[in-house]
Design a protein around this nucleic acid. Structure first.
Ligand code: NAD
Ligand code: NAD
Lengths: 213, 213
DNA sequence: GTCCGTTTGTGAATGAGAACTCAAGCACTA
DNA sequence: TAGTGCTTGAGTTCTCATTCACAAACGGAC
């Protein structure tokens, strides 16, 4: 292994590898080859090997990768070895769905604070968490919360992002449209734009007597 | 313009352009330059021009693009000029949130059918739509519905995908983990894997006394 | 201990996409 | 009608990512 910049696409795949390995380990599998992982995850074998090779040599030739071993290493790499508290901003349709979703738990990620705008929601207790006023967002610094999920309308996204930044948040999973977000922010922002993904689906419908061509 | 394969990344950006243009048109803007669009959407100017040039010549030098004009063209390209009915499969946390979301409407996309597994939910009427048994999924063919949103647990995803395929569905927006989906399906499947996106966020936290290096 | 089938790790080749550049085109002015 | 200031469209270059291909490494059989 040599010194390398890690490609973004590689980082994007790491959690997928981790999930696959956890699944296999649960099933009692001790080892797995890159080829078999490839079949399960729909990612090509050489791709998997190269991605992993950026971080070290985890496999043994002729055998494959130890499921338990490699998943531990991936947890280290992804910084998921210690639990992380996550703040949820916006308890609307989407925010409530995400709060009830338990799938993050297995990666040590847990929502422990919720912020709202709406006076009718502030003070309510959901899943043992008291919904706070968004004005109290600076309390995150004290609580050492570094991650946030943003599920508020487009209009407020930019302003709240800035406040989160000032409150010491370092990573944001954002559901507001991408143009709402300050591009030159130091915080790592991952945007999921569900509307845009749905909107490009009709493009692939084969009807198309297309303009192009 | 010459004959070209359209890059996937270009298609991914088209709806973003469309949204930006609709926003500008709403504000009364008649023209916009690629440079200005770039500022708004955080996508570089030359990128925008090249993407658009795959489909034709929409701008006029010295002036820019007509907001109304170009947004109409993009609608054509994306096949959003005629309304599309969408089926929602799985009315749980996420499914309910998506149903209540109105943002798709402006692209002519409307959820008009809902399917469930759970007998306690089947028959209920939400947003004027009667929740049907998932076994009735083949009725989609008759109703000429071609798009579906999949918001069911991982375990059932593969089976239901196959049934959707048989029911004539041509495009799926999938929220179940990617490994659940049959890779060699003819249907266009766009997967949004929220858990994986959140799981890679901690990687970017600057704490990292990293293994690599 | 040696041979054999398997699987890794990685440099080199290929491919895809983004960014750069600039000639050509249009509006506006005089 | 000629000049000026922008802006587009697209060929070229550059960067990043995926795929290929193979030597080296290991376990197990004998
Ligand atoms: N629900 C979906 O399926 C869906 C789909 C695509 C995109 N989105 C995006 O996700 C975001 C949230 O969507 P939603 O459907 O949950 O909206 P929503 O209106 O149901 O919920 C938004 C919540 O945020 C709160 N809020 C508003 N301003 C706030 C502020 N400044 N600080 C704190 N809280 C504030 C509101 O009180 C409300 O409870 C939006 O940006 C939307 O575009 C949602
Ligand atoms: N809610 C979230 O925030 C979230 C986040 C990340 C990923 N996801 C993914 O989205 C999917 C749905 O999540 P959710 O939180 O809404 O789950 P959920 O359990 O709340 O809802 C699932 C719904 O699907 C129904 N269902 C189950 N099997 C079915 C079948 N065969 N046919 C039709 N309906 C069926 C159930 O009755 C239930 O109502 C899951 O794959 C989950 O991993 C959800």
């Amino acid at each position: 292994m040599k010194f390398h910049r890690i490609p973004d696409e590689t980082v994007r795949r790491l959690p997928i590898y981790l999930r696959g390995l956890l699944l296999l380990a649960e099933q009692g599998r001790e080892h797995v080859s890159s080829h078999e992982l490839a079949d399960i995850l729909h990612i090509k074998g050489p791709q998997i090997r190269k991605d992993l090779s950026y971080f070290g040599e985890f496999g043994t030739p002729g055998v494959g990768y130890g499921t338990k071993e490699l998943s531990d290493c991936l947890r280290d790499i992804l910084n998921l070895n210690c639990p992380h508290k996550v703040a949820l901003v916006g308890y609307g349709n989407l925010g409530a769905a995400i709060l009830r979703y338990s799938g993050f738990r297995s990666y040590g990620l847990k929502i422990t604070a919720i912020f709202e705008n709406n006076p009718r929601k502030i003070g309510r207790i959901v899943q043992n968490i008291r919904i706070q006023d968004v004005k109290e967002i600076s309390s995150l610094k004290r609580k050492k919360i570094e991650l946030a999920i943003l599920a508020i309308p487009a209009e407020s996204a930019r302003e709240v992002t800035e406040r989160l930044e000032q409150a010491g948040i370092l990573g944001i999973l954002n559901f507001a449209p991408s143009y709402c977000i300050d591009a030159r922010s130091k915080v790592k922002i991952i945007t999921i734009d569900i509307g845009m993904d749905l909107a490009r689906l009709p493009y692939y419908l084969p009807i198309k007597a297309e303009i192009a061509g």
